[in-house]
């Protein structure tokens, strides 16, 4: 909230919850798809997330990460992609053969590159 609105109104302009697809940044999606094409196969069943070791106690949702990367909405998953413990349970369970562990690792890598302007 800007100082003007705080002092003058006691409220401000709310941040939109909208995913504006036309403004999304799909460079991370491209980076992962180029290196791990199985990324495209996810149909959001959630089996990866159901058995996720890290997800049991922290916000790590591989299914949702996949969706957000595809839409080009990166801010909400910035932290999440670094929390994978690489156990491989998701890989074992995925019915579509998505190489989920690698997807997570590539997502974390791509985010770092994004910050360094290397994408």
């Amino acid at each position: 909230m800007s100082q003007v609105s705080q002092q003058k109104f006691g409220f401000g302009i709310n941040k939109s919850r909208l995913i504006n697809y036309d403004k999304g940044d799909r460079r991370v999606r491209q980076y992962i798809t180029d290196r791990e094409p199985t990324f495209k196969l996810c149909f959001s069943c959630g089996a990866c997330t159901a058995g996720c070791t890290a997800g049991a106690h922290a916000t790590v949702n591989m299914r949702r990460v996949n969706v957000y990367i595809r839409r080009g909405e990166l801010e909400p998953i910035r932290e999440e992609v670094t929390r994978c413990m690489m156990c491989g349970k998701c890989l074992l369970t995925c019915p579509r053969g998505v190489n989920t562990r690698t997807v997570m690792a590539l997502a974390a890598e791509a985010m770092k590159k994004l910050d360094r302007n290397e994408l």
Partner: peptide, 14 residues
């Protein structure tokens, strides 16, 4: 509610 008026304002802004 004054504190909620941001929702109202933001809809008009949209």
């Amino acid at each position: 509610v004054q504190a909620n008026r941001g929702y109202s304002l933001s809809s008009s802004k949209k």
